[in-house]
């Protein structure tokens, strides 16, 4: 979807610029308020966050803080973050794609589609604290499903005691279930436009050449949708990788990178290195930049078929 703006034609605008060459010197002043705001509250914090990892507390430049990445707890947190993001991204993408498939052929302004669209945009926003509460009420110790399982005879069910470490919901593995609740809707939102881009004439062409529905999907549909699918998958990965509030409400002892940043910024000495939160922030940004570059590349490919 990022490339949607890229194909916006820039042809009609030349007239306005040429006609007022003299006033342009003053006109750029109009950009100053926004530029100043973005500089102060986006550029400065971003640079401070990522840059602080390269300085000692006294303010001298150092690379020693990068030693934080050698800390086994930090490594474990990174692996846990990547693990959760990968699992929920793949599962969310597959389930979301199946939902998109089910919606194929319904009218885009019909009741069903409007309902699914609205529900998806609400639930994709439904991160954070409220999502945590919803799942505490569902699979927490007193949750609806947990109690129902107990009352139907499964006293030691997976939600009440997972890995002998108490309720599943308050462990890192439990986050997978919770995150899927916003990953699947996000997949529906981002993948549906690509799914709609499939032209019905392609299915008809395939059919006149003797193709079945199976050959249509394996030979035409899936290859065409592949870049969009993987693009959305990366977006989902990035989404759960950077998600903080839900985990903060559920996990008290940390275990994933966003929580580690919070712990490090409230107590600087755990790893014995200064500005660890800055170092971890740098690590997250590197991962995000890799993801977003891949996303942009895939999206460029995907947009070929969406004209």
């Amino acid at each position: 979807m990022m490339s949607a703006a890229a194909i916006a034609p820039a042809t009609t605008t030349s007239g306005a610029g040429v006609s007022t060459p003299r006033r342009r010197s003053v006109a750029w002043l109009g950009l100053l308020p926004f530029a100043g705001y973005v500089l102060l509250f986006l550029a400065v914090p971003a640079v401070l966050a990522v840059g602080s990892g390269f300085f000692t507390r006294a303010g001298a430049f150092t690379l020693a803080n990068l030693a934080a990445f050698a800390d086994p707890n930090i490594q474990k947190a990174f692996l846990a973050s990547i693990g959760i993001s990968a699992l929920t991204a793949v599962a969310g993408a597959v389930i979301g794609a199946v939902v998109c498939f089910a919606l194929l052929g319904t009218r885009s302004d019909g009741f069903l589609r409007t309902a699914v669209d609205s529900a998806s945009s609400v639930l994709a926003q439904f991160g954070g604290v409220m999502l945590a509460f919803a799942f505490i009420a569902t699979i927490g110790q007193q949750g609806l499903i947990t109690k129902w399982l107990i009352s139907s005879g499964l006293a030691d069910n997976v939600f009440l005691n997972f890995n002998n470490q108490g309720p599943l919901l308050y462990q890192i593995s439990g986050l997978n279930i919770v995150y899927l609740y916003f990953q699947v809707p996000l997949m529906v939102l981002t993948f549906m436009p690509a799914m709609e881009g499939l032209k019905s004439t392609w299915a008809e062409a395939s059919a006149t050449l003797g193709g079945t529905r199976l050959t249509y999907w394996t030979r035409i549909g899936m290859p065409i949708l592949a870049p969009a699918f993987f693009g959305s998958l990366i977006l989902l990965f990035a989404n759960s990788f950077s998600s903080y509030a839900t985990a903060a409400a559920l996990l008290s002892q940390g275990g994933i990178i966003p929580l580690a940043i919070k712990q490090q910024s409230s107590s600087e000495t755990v790893v014995g290195v200064a500005n660890v939160s800055g170092v971890l922030a740098l690590g997250m940004v590197v991962v995000m930049i890799v993801l977003m570059t891949a996303y942009a590349a895939l999206q460029r490919r995907a947009s070929r078929w969406q004209r």
Partner: peptide, 19 residues
């Protein structure tokens, strides 16, 4: 305008504290 999606708010917030 898209940058804030790429930089997680948990990262930005580390920089917001001194600001």
């Amino acid at each position: 305008c898209i940058i804030p999606i790429t930089i997680p708010s948990i990262v930005l917030v580390v920089g917001f504290v001194p600001v």
